[in-house]
């Protein structure tokens, strides 16, 4: 019961936040008058979406393989975790590059 309550509360917070975002987006949509700005917004959204999609798949595959290896041979845990952390950091860096480019498109162009 307590867990359900926590989930419902979290959902409420998320819905509230998304409402705020939607209101902000409505205000921003009025500013997007020129086709160039519309294309920039589309490019920023698509860019971060593709990067997040690829990064999530890459990280998921990496973690799944590493956990599989650890489950098969728990003694090799130390040797498996180090390359996994390096791989995760590299994938995350690529997603952050995309985030930076998207933010630059939105706020500095």
């Amino acid at each position: 019961m307590k867990k359900i309550l926590v989930v419902v509360m979290l959902l409420g917070v998320f819905v509230g936040l998304s409402f705020g975002v939607a209101l902000a987006a409505e205000g921003a949509a009025a500013v997007l008058d020129s086709p160039v700005k519309q294309m920039v917004a589309l490019a920023a959204g698509l860019g971060i979406a593709i990067a997040a999609f690829g990064g999530a798949i890459g990280q998921g595959m990496g973690i799944a393989s590493a956990l599989n290896g650890i489950a098969r041979n728990p003694g090799a845990s130390g040797k498996i975790v180090t390359p996994m952390i390096i791989g995760l950091a590299m994938v995350e860096s690529l997603v952050i590059y995309s985030l930076v480019v998207s933010l630059l498109l939105l706020f500095k162009l």
Partner: peptide, 22 residues
Amino acid sequence: VAAVIMFGDINVVFFLLGLSTV
């Protein structure tokens, strides 16, 4: 990252170089 880009006076090339540290 968003706060630095939105409010900071940064050079993009050097910022990306910094992000490539890892």
